[in-house]
Amino acid sequence: MTRALRLLRRRLVGSVFVLLIVIIGSFLLLEAAPGDAVDAYIVSTGGDAGMIELLRHRWGLDQSELTRLANYLWALLHLDLGQSVTFSRAIRDVILERLPTTLILMGSATALSFGLGSTLGVYAGARPGSFRDRFLSIGSLALYAVPGFWLGLVLIVIFAVDLRWLPVGGIETIASGKTGLARAADIATHLVLPVSALGFIYLALYLRMMRAGMAEAWRQDFVLAARARGLRQRRIVLAHVARNALLPLVTMLGLQSAQMLGGSVVIESVFAVPGLGRLAQEAVAGRDTPLLLGIILVSAVVVVVINLLVDLAYAVLDPRVGASEGSA
């Protein structure tokens, strides 16, 4: 495990720099936005010019840009993201309240697209160039061309409006009083449509990657060796060809996490799921720039953490990763 830990340490140092750049970038955006925290505060409470001066001074907004950046960093170091105007609460608390919903949505959608995509990819890649391979490749491309929010609306029309099988939106039945397993089942039925809308779009990515990796692996010598040993076709496909094509897909999981988070913004708005994405839209509607940038910072942290986990998983799966760093 020391190999994986060493890798983790090196990645952590890189991540800190990346997050620092994200923070500086969001500070610049905050500065570029019209109005500041005091303006927003005065709008909601009212006050005269003297009070504005006093507040600007007290909140350190009359100081130089560098000092303000330092103050911003100092606050972030204490996990203080500032105050939301639209919610009149600490931004950190509002975000933490919404984050789990988005993580569940993202996680389920990723599981769906990865699971189904790689399975279909194995099916297509088992015989490259066959009819089913061509059909699945073109079909997945067509799916990849579908805007997620539109797929969501179409699913609503079919399954919620026409067939009435599933709820139109929301995360659970309001005031149903359900607890425990009944509540979990209720949330699950509410999640079926949003997870499908988000997951089906990215399915194509894993399918095509798996298929391409397998097409490549068929040409390798170990396939010939496996054939020469008289292994069954099924075993060659699963244990030799597909297995070798699987690793790049794991990397893709990490790279794709930022896209998934971005995609969930629109999906959450279509299905009225009270997650981080819907919060971002509420922040836009309420012109709450600090809240919006808080969401961006938190999603950057989420993406960094997911990528660290993926790197760790990769190191565990592939003994070659990080092995050469031992002597260095």
Binding site: L19, Q259, L261, G263, V265
Partner: peptide, 16 residues
């Protein structure tokens, strides 16, 4: 850093 921030969120913030 630009790849870490979800590009759609960035676009949303920039336009707003």
């Amino acid at each position: 850093a630009f790849q870490t921030v979800p590009s759609f969120l960035l676009a949303l913030a920039f336009v707003s």
